[in-house]
Each structure stands twice: as C-alpha cells, then as structure tokens.
Design a protein around this nucleic acid. Structure first.
Lengths: 238, 238
DNA sequence: GGGTGTGATATTGGATCCAATATTATGCGT
DNA sequence: ACGCATAATATTGGATCCAATATCACACCC
C-alpha cells in the first residue's frame, strides 16, 4: 500500500504547527496533492480531519485556509483545558490512584525536582521538563477513567500551539521562565498530595489553576509580571 | 451533484441514535454503501466522522462497529458537559450579556414558565420544553465567546444520547419527570440572574450542577429518588 | 490430532475519472 | 465607463478501479 492518509494528516499538521504553512495560507486539494506527491483522496480526508482539529477553515468554493489563531482564542483553549484537567484530577482523586499511577507520578515529581535543582534551565533540561510535564498530565487524565475527557481534549490538543509566535518562551529571560517552572512544579506536588488523599475538590482547584501555568505563557505586554497567571479577565472581548 | 456525504453522515448517525443500528452491529464500507445506494467514498468519510464523534469504533481489518456506550460513560460525558457549560456561564457573566441575548433568554424563561404552568407535561409540551432548553444552553455557550468550548462540546454532542434505553424518560411516571423539569427550570432562572449581575462563580456553579439535571436522567436503580442529581460518586469504577 | 502454513476472502487505502457548483473573469450592451 | 450576463476556470463531491493487507478457513504435514 502507498503512503497512508494518516501520514498526510501528520505531515500537513506538522507543516502548519511549524509555520511552514503560515496562517492565512490558502490550500486547495489538487495543488496540495501534487506538492505532496499523493492523490486527492488522502488530502481530502486530511483537510477534513484538520478542519475538525480547528487548524483549517473551509472557504466554501475556494478551498481551505490555515486558520489564524488569536491570542484570545488560545487563552480560551487554555481555560477549557483547565476545567477539563481539573475535572480529571477530581475524578482521579475520587476513584483513587492505582499503585502503578502513584509510583509513576512520584517518579515524575522526583525527576522534575532533579531537573529544576540547578540554576537555570538549558535547552536539554527544558525538553526533559516538558516531557515529564506532559506525562504527568496524561496520567492524571488516564486516572480519571473518563473517556469523555480525552475526547473533549482531543480537539484542543494542537490548537494552543498553532500560534507559536504568541506562545514562544522568552529564551532571553530564561531565569524568569525557570522560576515559573518551579512554581508550576510545586503545583504538581500539591495536586499529587490531594489526589492520593482523596481530596477531589482541592485536586480540581489546583489543577484548574495549574493548567494556565504549564501550557505556556502568553507573550503579552499585559502579562509580564512575575508568576502572573493568565486570568479570564485578560481575554480581549470580541 | 449527487447526495452529499454530509447526508450520509446524518443518515447513519440518525440510524445509530434511533437504534435502527443496534450497538455492536458490525459495519463495512461496501455493504453499507450498497444499502444506502451510494458509493464507498461518502461512506468512508462518514465512518471516519462518526468514529470521531465516538459513535463507531474501528476494528482494524474487520470494519467498524456501532459502539455500545455504558451508563458510566454517559455519566462521564454529562460531567464533562457540566464543567464546560459551567465555564461558559462564567465567561458569559464576566463578558456581560448582549441585549439581544438578555431578551432572548428572558423570553425563553417566560416560555418555560408557561409550558410548566399546567399540571403534567404531555408529549407536545415535552417537545417544546426540550427545544426551549436546548436554545437556552446554546445561548449561554454563544455568550461565552469562547470557540474552544464549542469545539470541546462537539465530540460530546451525540454521545449522551447514544444509549436511549439508558436515558429514556420514564413516561409512565410523567408527574415525577415534570417535577424535575420544574426544578431544572428554576436553575435556568438562577443562572440567568447570576449572568446578568456579573456573578461568574455563581453562574458557573449553578450551571455545572444543572447540566446533570437537563441532559436526561439515568434509568438506574440506584438513582430513582425524587430530584436526585447524578453525582460523580455514582459512577461505576472500571 | 494438533499446529503451522498457505490460499481465499473480506476489507480498507489510494488513484483516477466524471459530474456539479461556485467563483471569477471577460465581453457585450447600454 | 459601468453593469449585467455569459463563459471559463477552479474546486469540491461522488463513483469506480486497482493495490495492499489483514483475517480466516482449510488442508497438509508432523
């Protein structure tokens, strides 16, 4: 069999997220298919999937367009993630954590402590921290045993990263970013404590607040204060 | 142009929701296409879309299967809806309602009061109430001005109704059901009050709790008490 | 008699062809 | 010169054909 259409989806998604296809770029099936060296069929399926993910907008009769995502939209998506992960933490706490989840979370907490022990994060440590962080969140969602949460999150999986310029870390101010990670990782500890003690409401509250702190910080003039967490009040009205 | 593939999606979805295609039914592209009188292409697209919606499961190499949705899953989906609509109500309250939304919500509240004024709901009144209810919820979500909420809800749109046997109203006990509607509609009034007064946290709390009360009641032996709201504690562990 | 391998069949993924439609450009008439 | 109608073009949706793969059954061998 030839290239599977899943690969076309992946390829296009990556091109969008890495801004090889800039926001606003117009895409049609035939030119895209030719450029990727496949037929229209997998491209059609990919366009639909990416539209579903919120990365493409359909322009009826004129193809598709790479969606430009506003900062307000990203903040909105982060808030959605917050309530969903908050619910996950609550349900995980109420269900009780399995031994396997408990020990893996403990290991991840230790790993995070170790990564943050030094003075200022370098590239490699940043990468390791983010992997640890992703796994931590994934376990919380797993432990909720509620497939609807994963389903609801799937739409928001890529959207928050669609505008990397708005979300990019300020690498010139790595010491400030490092302090934010330290704060965020303290929240990991608190969530874990709440979960292993069956404190559903606390787990939910901390996790909901924490979502803002881990998905990335908005590079926004109004929001450069030390350890400021994005509040819904910062959203621009439309 | 022939039947659009959207119609195939709609047709199949309806067949699943109305249990014309029972849970567990195996579906393959070719027989389904022949049965519907279309080619494989729209069926392929429809299967993918319905898989995305959580109505079909892919059995690799053996086609698709109509998913059987457990009561626990439905309750999980309702809880997800609760936190998302709760967030929507909060953001609507914080953004402030437009005059158009205010007056339409007020009209819907009046309509609900009128429908519920009589003694016991008949079929037609039930239908009218549910339309009013759907519109009320849709406006709250609209007023949040957060597209991520709609995106997250889109996956859960149909799932809660996939198992109608578990969700069916007990028409033999219509007076009891009517009392539940009266309670739920009081919550509508409270959410509206909170929203027009900018009370984000109250709007969120009431709406979150209210989601349980409007999506339908689980026909579950453990949950037949008067005005009982589904709590997350009722979920069966797995 | 059981296990393994091979072949038949079911099923999906991709390519190409055709039909319908929406958008856009062009030209004609006023 | 402007507006409207018409034609050209771009674009998508559906149908069909071909290729690859996975499942399943059956037969053969040990």
């Amino acid at each position: 069999m030839q290239k599977t259409q899943t690969n076309v989806v992946t390829t296009l998604r990556q091109m969008i997220l890495e801004e090889e296809l800039a926001a606003g770029t117009r895409l049609a099936e035939i030119p895209t298919a030719e450029k990727l060296g496949v037929s229209r069929t997998p491209v059609r399926i990919a366009f639909r999937a990416l539209e579903q993910e919120g990365l493409l907008t359909k322009l009826p009769g004129r193809g598709y367009e790479v969606r430009s995502v506003s900062v307000a939209e990203i903040i909105g998506a982060v808030e959605v993630r917050g309530v969903l992960e908050g619910l996950a933490a609550r349900q995980a706490a109420e269900n009780g954590l399995s031994d396997a989840h408990k020990s893996e979370l403990q290991a991840l907490l230790d790993l995070g402590d170790e990564i943050l022990a030094g003075d200022e994060l370098n590239e490699a440590e940043l990468e390791r921290y983010q992997q640890m962080n992703k796994r931590f969140h994934d376990i919380v969602i797993e432990a909720a045993h509620n497939p609807a949460i994963q389903a609801a999150l799937s739409r928001n999986e890529h959207l928050p990263f669609a505008s990397s310029s708005a979300l990019a870390f300020d690498k010139k101010q790595m010491s400030k970013e490092t302090k934010r990670f330290e704060f965020a990782h303290q929240q990991h500890h608190h969530v874990f404590y709440a979960m292993i003690n069956g404190l559903g409401s606390r787990a939910e509250g901390i996790m909901r607040e924490h979502a803002n702190a881990t998905l990335g910080y908005i590079n926004n003039p109004r929001n450069t204060d030390e350890l400021t967490v994005i509040s819904e009040r910062d959203r621009t009205r439309n």
